Simulated assay, not measured.
Amino acid sequence: MGFDGDVWRLMRQEELLGEIVIEEADFPWLSGRFVPAPAFGEVKPWFDETLALLEAEEYERFDASYDRIANALTLVAPSGPVAEFLLHVSEAHAWFRWSDEPFDEA
């Protein structure tokens, strides 16, 4: 699909939190190696919490928890920032989907 090796960046305003080196594309998901920047430690608990909520199948709580990530962070594709994304990070692995348009709330 042409994504292998691409580097996506996780940002908080102008601060780099980490990079995702794409290793697999399984539409609509991309996944790869997550390389955290030192500042990622500040938001790592957010990602840990959302994964725990997903594993517990507490979807309403997941939505509320994930809003913190979506509202504070930006995912930047090689071509520039994306409008919306759903990102999971676990240790050195990240997987996500994204859209150039906001996700449909319906």
Score class of each variant (00 low, 15 high):
residue 22 I to F: 02
residue 74 T to H: 01
residue 5 G to P: 07
residue 69 I to L: 04
residue 85 F to V: 00
residue 7 V to G: 13
residue 86 L to F: 14
residue 75 L to K: 10
residue 66 Y to G: 03
residue 46 W to A: 01
residue 43 V to N: 03
residue 37 A to Y: 01
residue 83 A to D: 00
residue 16 L to I: 04
residue 66 Y to P: 03
residue 47 F to H: 07
residue 49 E to L: 15
residue 52 A to K: 02
residue 56 A to C: 06
residue 36 P to N: 03
residue 52 A to G: 12
residue 6 D to R: 14
residue 5 G to I: 14
residue 40 F to E: 07
residue 62 F to E: 02
residue 90 S to G: 12
residue 4 D to M: 13
residue 79 S to I: 10
residue 31 S to V: 07
residue 17 L to W: 04
residue 16 L to N: 07
residue 11 M to S: 07
residue 32 G to V: 04
residue 4 D to Q: 15
residue 16 L to G: 02
residue 8 W to A: 03
residue 72 A to W: 01
residue 60 E to L: 01
residue 41 G to Y: 11
residue 46 W to D: 04
residue 16 L to A: 09
residue 103 F to T: 05
residue 98 W to D: 04
residue 76 V to E: 07
residue 99 S to G: 14
residue 76 V to I: 07
residue 39 A to T: 13
residue 86 L to D: 11
residue 86 L to V: 14
residue 103 F to A: 07
residue 2 G to K: 13
residue 19 E to T: 10
residue 86 L to M: 15
residue 49 E to Q: 15
residue 90 S to K: 15
residue 25 A to Y: 14
residue 24 E to T: 03
residue 16 L to E: 09
residue 77 A to V: 05
residue 4 D to C: 12
residue 70 A to I: 01
residue 65 S to H: 06
residue 30 L to E: 00
residue 98 W to T: 08
residue 38 P to V: 11
residue 55 E to N: 08
residue 70 A to C: 04
residue 65 S to C: 06
residue 51 L to K: 12
residue 91 E to M: 12
residue 34 F to V: 09
residue 20 I to F: 00
residue 70 A to L: 15
residue 60 E to I: 01
residue 54 L to D: 09
residue 49 E to R: 15
residue 68 R to T: 03
residue 98 W to F: 13
residue 35 V to I: 14
residue 60 E to Q: 04
residue 67 D to E: 10
residue 46 W to F: 08
residue 39 A to V: 10
residue 10 L to P: 00
residue 34 F to E: 00
residue 47 F to C: 10
residue 7 V to L: 08
residue 50 T to H: 01
residue 10 L to T: 05
residue 30 L to C: 02
residue 11 M to Q: 10
residue 2 G to H: 13
residue 52 A to P: 03
residue 60 E to R: 02
residue 87 L to I: 13
residue 38 P to G: 10
residue 29 W to V: 14
residue 62 F to P: 08
residue 1 M to F: 04
residue 88 H to M: 13
residue 81 P to T: 01
residue 71 N to M: 08
residue 91 E to P: 00
residue 41 G to E: 09
residue 19 E to M: 06
residue 63 D to F: 10
residue 98 W to R: 00
residue 77 A to P: 03
residue 67 D to P: 00
residue 18 G to F: 04
residue 41 G to F: 12
residue 80 G to D: 06
residue 104 D to Y: 12
residue 18 G to L: 01
residue 21 V to D: 02
residue 85 F to Q: 02
